Amino acid sequence: MPQTWLIVGPPGCGKTNWIRETLLKHQGSCAYLRLDGCSHEGLEAGINAGIDRNWLSDQIPRLQDLSNASVSPLPSSEDCLALIEAQQFRFPSIADSDRIDPRIQQQLDRLNLKPDKTLHFGRDSELPKQDTLDFTQLEAWHLNLRDSVWDPSSLSSFWFELVNGAYGDVYRAKALMNLPDGRSFFCNWMVSQEGSQFLPLETVEPPTGRPTRCSHLVVQGKALDQVGIQNTISDCLLADEVLEMQQAQLRQQQPDLQLN
């Protein structure tokens, strides 16, 4: 029969990567949902900006989006696996091991979703533990970059500065970023890891203007220089005339591009 699992854990512990690997191995139909995270005193959850859902949907085209589960319910096939992700800083005590945070439970109830089991990063042995950090203080900031296109070299410089402390103590950063040639990259960094991930999406749009797909930056850390981050980003994004000049060159180099 269909299975529904709730996967929770703190920022950057590897929830989305584990979900991706699990769904890629699954032979049947599959579905995914990311819920809004739960903040605690001094610990601010990152916004649910659609980064994870769009990344997973690109990697697993057959993946069903459960964000409208109350209208479009789970597939009824016996082999369906639905994984629900939520950011949660602390897991319940042993006495409350089966209890779901009320704020997460309310979201599940609105969508008529009832997990068969809940897995906590940092508690359950079947999940990896190496990147599960115990945060004592964390603030979050995000920026919607829809329609924005980056100068590639400026993106590399900005990301290096961001994760190396130029704008405060960044512990977690993830984003979907658009380049002028129609590619988009999933950028992913966690303080417990040695380096960043820059993973290209499979879907490439034709270089004919500004893309309309999801592009967003989410940052978590301490003493974040939000104004400094935003000002630097503004200097890194391509203006209309520069974007058209670069894309026109690409179209001339590749006349067989699909432009429709």
Rank of each mutant, 00 (worst) to 15 (best):
L66Q: 05
A95G: 06
L83E: 01
F91S: 07
G37K: 00
S39M: 04
G28W: 09
G37T: 00
I84N: 00
C38R: 13
L83F: 04
D58P: 08
P115K: 01
Q107H: 07
S57D: 04
G42K: 09
A86G: 08
Q64F: 10
N112M: 03
Q88N: 15
L127T: 06
R34D: 06
P115T: 04
D116A: 07
R123S: 02
L111F: 01
S67C: 11
A86C: 13
L66P: 05
P92T: 01
E126N: 14
P92V: 02
I104P: 04
Y32T: 03
L24M: 08
T22Q: 08
L23R: 05
G28C: 09
E126M: 11
S125G: 02
R62C: 12
V71H: 13
Q59N: 11
Q105Y: 10
Q105C: 01
R34M: 09
E78N: 11
F91N: 07
C38W: 11
S97C: 13
N54V: 08
H120R: 00
L33K: 01
S77W: 09
K25T: 14
S29M: 13
S39Y: 00
E44A: 10
D101A: 05
Q130A: 14
E126Y: 04
L43K: 08
Y32R: 00
Q88T: 08
S76V: 10
L63T: 09
D52I: 01
L74F: 07
K117Y: 14
S57A: 14
S77C: 09
R103F: 02
I19Y: 04
L66G: 04
S72L: 15
G46Q: 12
D79E: 15
T118W: 01
C30P: 05
R34Y: 01
F91H: 13
L24Q: 14
I100S: 02
D79N: 15
Q106G: 11
L127M: 04
I51K: 00
C80E: 02
L119Y: 14
I94Y: 14
A86M: 02
A45N: 05
Q130C: 12
H120W: 10
I51Y: 01
Q105S: 13
A45D: 03
F121I: 01
D109V: 05
G50Q: 03
R62W: 13
T118N: 04
A95D: 15
A45R: 02
Q64L: 14
Y32H: 10
G37L: 00
W55G: 00
Q88V: 14
P75L: 00
T118R: 02
S72P: 05
H26E: 09
I104C: 09
Q105P: 05
Q88P: 09
L56D: 03
Q87L: 10
S67F: 05
Q130G: 05
Q64D: 11
K117V: 10
L63S: 09
S39D: 05
E41N: 13
W55E: 01
D58T: 07
P73K: 12
L81W: 12
